[in-house]
Design a protein around this nucleic acid. Sequence first.
RNA 1: GGGCGUGUAACUCAGCGGUUAGAGUGCCUCCCUUACAAGGAGGAAGUCGGGGGUUCGAGUCCCUCCUCGCCCACCA
Length: 999
Amino acid sequence: MATELPKAYDPKAAQEKWLTFWEERGYFHCKPDATKKPYTIVIPPPNVTGALHMGHALNNTLQDVLIRWRRMQGYNALWMPGTDHAGIATQSVVERLVMAQEKKTRHDLGREELVRRIWDWKDKYEARILGQLREIGASCDWKRTRFTLDPVCARAVRETFFRMFRDGYIYRGKRLVNWDTSLQTSVADDETDTVPTKSGFWTFKYRVDGSPDTFIAFSTTRPETMLGDTAVCVHPNDERYKHLIGKLVTQPHTDRKIPIIADGQLADPKLGTGCVKVTPAHDPNDYACWQRHPEIGIINILNPDGTINENGGEYKGLDRYKAREAVTKKMEELGLYVGKEDREVPLKISDRSKTPIEPYLSDQWFVKMSDRTDGKPGLAQMAMDAVTSEKVKFFPERYKDGYLAWLGEKRDWCISRQLWWGHRIAVWTRTFTDRKTFEDTLVLEAGGWSSIPHVAWTAQDDTMAVHVCLEYDDPDMIAALTGDGFTQSDDVLDTWFSSALWPHSTLGWPGPTLPEEKAGREAPDWEKMRSFYPTSTLVTSRDIITLWVARMVITGLYNVGDIPFRDVYVHPKVMDGFGETMSKTKGNGVDPVDIINLYGTDAMRYGVVKLATETQDSRMPVSNVCPHCGKDVPIKQEHMYMRTKKLVCPSCKQSFRPGGPWPTEDPELKTAKQGSDRFEEGRNFANKMWNATRFILMNLDGYTPGPVDVASLPTEDRWLLSRLATTTKAVTAALEGYHFSEVARLVYEFVWSEFCDWYIEMSKGRLKDPATRAPAQRVLTGVLDGILRLVQPVMPFLAESLWAALSEVAPVRGLPTPTKAEESVVIAKWPTYPEAWIDAPVEARFARMQDLVRSVREVRNRYQVDDKTRLDVSVKCSDIVAADFNALSAFIGPLAGIATLTAGPTAVKPKQAGGIVRPEFEAYVSLSGLIDPAAEIKRLDKQIAEKRKALDGVNAKLNNEKFMKGAPPEVVQQQRETVVDIEKQIAAMEENLRDLQTA
RNA sequence: GGGCGUGUAACUCAGCGGUUAGAGUGCCUCCCUUACAAGGAGGAAGUCGGGGGUUCGAGUCCCUCCUCGCCCACCA
């Protein structure tokens, strides 16, 4: 009946088998259930820009550990999967592809076609990403997979926008954007390149009004922007200029009078002349200054094509660079030119058109974050309160500081993007040229709109625009608006706007709101799924705490009236072997599937869990695994980032392409997989558990289940159960505190160093003896059962394989009372053991016996005693060891290669003194004729000296009055015991030394 | 520039106020002992980044300098 397991664990077979099994059983699908407590995690939706790397594998493995653990604890555990459309990032990836393959810009394709191409891309990478997640064993509820642009999410986005618009949180405002004058569009920061460019650094001066001889000098790299100056600015404490603050100067090209203002944030007395011109419409810093000093005004001098507009007076129509020359020339003529130095300046260039970017003032949509005066809550404050009140907790806690500081600025959130890939903004706008018509329209139409519940509107006085927002696409209303000259905005929403809703949009919020939904057709499931909200834990990376986490808290509170998650666990980052964080853009990401193929999924998961420590980011040095001969080829930095196209294997001399996230296969050259020895520990550990189980299964003939009375068990069993109970408790606590690395460490140590190295070895003798075989079998199966449960969250494929094998032979097992095992370890109960099992005295006794065994082995090794020679060991035991001695000697003997182990109140010294070992046991090992006395004397001398040094240190403490007064009694006691201990050791060693010297 | 981290054995990391500082890998010696050579037994290897301080006691707390990393600002 014994089952014979193969000799080594084959991860690949296990992965395929159990993935199918779990999905068939539907363990991961989760429905609302009033009888169970919910535990919910929403996945941080990966961007559909490309495949996942090890950073994602870490993030998702940790979520899976939590979900699998809570599922075992009996929670209704829902892990919501999905992906993010990632606006600009995805659009640029596809645009670059189109450019590379067809030499076409998005304008050549047109909006509809480009968006279609992006959907194709999305389909491809979404499938790839979800496949990768499945492969790492993620126990997501796949049936609920969402995408931030799918209809359910779109509904939530639309509803949120409408409500915020209606409640006055969304407004139209000005913002400086990066303007591409050639494509005449705004571009995002990450679509620009900053290149050092040779240019000038001009210094000019303006004449101070009222005193013909007083000038104020300033410098600029862009003289043409003088046309838009609305102030000059000095530092409030700058003695050179203090007396000028508040005076006016003349801007000579436009003949405008502009003030000298003081602003400590803009002007730095140490830089340049200490005085700076202020051009709010064309410089981000000046713009910020204007926001602090709105009275100075803001003047836009550019047309969208980069020529000067009517505000530039006589320079109107000139290209900005022509204007630069003309403006400078005029200053020279007026004697206001001070000088020019040649300088390299950072120039922002558009990625797309390769032309210089101009900061350009444009109208954008914003979400107001600051406090409100009308009684409605301020959004930023609301989200801050959720964290300061500890409704939302950060792990590790320090991350809450960054969150609070960022929200504390209460900066409004610009949510409109001039892109084609995203949620299009549902606002229809009409801009008037004539103020009377504008005002008349408001009087006539606005009253009517106000009475329609799904319509909201605002009027923008400065641009004479009317904006109408619709809660849903009401065809009649759209027709009416279009007929009146309204057009829908071309802009889409910032991608974070939709991901901000992720925890509730994926659960179906807002539920039925549309007329057809209310009529019963296809309503999202919010009512039913509401019980999964707030979600339990968010597992994320620290760089999106502000962009994403903060915004989820805001929208959760605003939309649902409750926080989106209780805990935020921020995990460390995976860096490459050279200390740089892995990222798609850098190209140093390692594909988890490479690691899985080389080491197995369980090993990959164990590796990343081990890596998730409290404070540190972890390096993951990789090597290229030669695709021809399988040898590891060490990696150099220049092989990374896909810089090196070809390498030659030093061992088989064949060429290959270094591993990396290459976009395409190379038909000519095989690509290396990337390996990392950081995963060997996990692979070895999996194999160790496999073989431990294999051993147990080979020894289960005649197994019968039965209750186990722990108190009557031999010492080693009680020790093992004490260790199991302690470990289980510690693992549970580590999971509760998100100490993932600790979880891996604890399980590893218990299984390998305690269960395998000691207990299984000891059990070998007992299994041969019919009298002791049955209880040993029960303990072995019972403890293995517990181990598999503890290991399941981290190494589910291995655990399931062994669970199934064990269940074939011992379906009824467990301690102290056996029960029928669940059909899968995935749904098995998380273990808890009686507190009474934890037995410190037994653990202490056992530790001393381990020391004794190790000592004898050390002597054997030192003197190269061959393993067939059995040694005589004599131990003096007058204390607790004596009590266990007889019971323990039976198995210690074989373990340490001891022939006879004698014990008594006095130890019997062998005729020829040999290695005295572990003086605390006063144990003698007979090594007649085997030792070299001179070498042994030398060794003992060295050891005694070391011990004396340690003793001196401890004695110094005990002779220190302050220590005796200041230290707690238990520490003093501990030190005293140490002294006795060391003295005993020294005495024993000295005695041994004397024996050797006389011999 | 501001903030947050980080520096411990050759490598990757634990330890975060209290015995004589640990693990895995690598290295050295021995062993293919029927669970496992992806293994077993043993060993060598560390002035815990530098310098000050607090404390009876400091990898552990404070200050400072240096290294590296991340985030945020900024570069007239």
